[in-house]
């Protein structure tokens, strides 16, 4: 673990990514302590202010401190992203390994399921679900989980298939190992690396999706702060002040950059072909 960290830090993009991610995670975790104001407390007299000593990013149309809202919004964003990806990853791994290692009919059944889900456009699916059960954080998480499972499942299945044909798997079988042992001890460790990278690069996509749904009013309900709802507010005020839009989009850009750089340098470390040869 420390060795991986050292490798990541060695490269400037890796270090940059790691710093950004740490910064965002820490500020989201400590939002309650660091944020100078209550993110939902109205303060109409101070509305639509430009950045100042008192309000680092200014205030919105209801006079709420944008800096505090961004910090608390990070909490929502990361919460949604980590839960959704964590669950999707776990389900994807199980289904993918079953498809890759199990009998042909099971493989076909699981693939059919994956393809069915993937054939819905994500946004349409999300809108339909929200229309049915109403907008909430849980709905967003559920939609994201369902739509990302096939992506991970597919990757896991392909990796399992290619590892399955290796002699060390046959060797395990000849030694009398059970399927669960082979999957857990010999296949999983060999596919988990690339998956982690994929997941870390997916986190910004999911955050953007959450922001997008909130922006459309389909995600987090007001007054809960979320980067998407900040953007949404800012959009309607674009002719009055640029600050809400800036406050909502900068963290989105930063987190995307941070996780992408981190994921890329992780991939370079784990993929032996990209690792320094000889």
């Amino acid at each position: 673990m420390i060795a991986i960290l050292r490798r990541v830090i060695k490269e400037p993009t890796g270090l940059f990514g790691l710093l950004l991610v740490t910064l965002i995670v820490v500020s989201a975790l400590l939002a309650g302590v660091v944020a100078p104001y209550d993110p939902i407390a109205l303060n109409i007299p101070d509305r639509l202010q430009s950045p100042s000593q008192a309000h680092l990013l200014g205030t919105d149309q209801l006079g709420r401190d944008l800096f505090s809202r961004v910090l608390h919004g990070g909490r929502v964003a990361l919460g949604v992203a980590l839960t959704a990806i964590g669950v999707a990853l776990a389900v994807g791994i199980v289904l993918g390994m079953l498809a890759g290692f199990g009998p042909r009919w099971l493989d076909k059944a699981i693939l059919l399921l994956f393809d069915t889900i993937r054939s819905f456009p994500t946004v349409m699916f999300a809108l339909a679900t929200v229309a049915l059960v109403g907008p909430s954080l849980q709905t967003v998480i559920a939609v994201i989980i369902v739509t990302t499972i096939p992506t991970y499942g597919r990757v896991v299945r392909t990796q399992t298939l290619s590892i399955k044909s290796n002699e060390f798997i046959k060797a395990e079988q000849v030694m009398g190992a059970k399927t669960t042992r082979i999957l857990g001890l010999h296949i999983l460790p060999n596919i988990v690396g690339p998956l982690m990278i994929l997941a870390s690069m997916d986190i910004p996509t999911v955050i953007a999706l959450e922001a997008g749904l909130s922006f459309l009013g389909m995600g987090v309900k007001p007054p809960t702060p979320s980067w998407g709802s900040i953007l949404n507010d800012g959009f309607s005020l674009i002719r009055v002040t640029p600050w809400p839009i800036i406050a909502g989009s900068v963290p989105l850009i930063l987190i995307t950059l941070g996780f992408t750089y981190l994921g890329e340098s992780l991939r370079d470390f784990i993929d032996p072909k990209l690792r320094k040869s000889f």
């Binding site: 046959k170 001890l185 060999n190």
Partner: peptide, 26 residues
Amino acid sequence: YMWQNAIGSLSPRMTVRSLITEPARI
């Protein structure tokens, strides 16, 4: 069983010590 592909038949993320005692654990 001794495999034709000697290196390929060894699980790549295990040490030699755990590889050769794997049958006992299985």
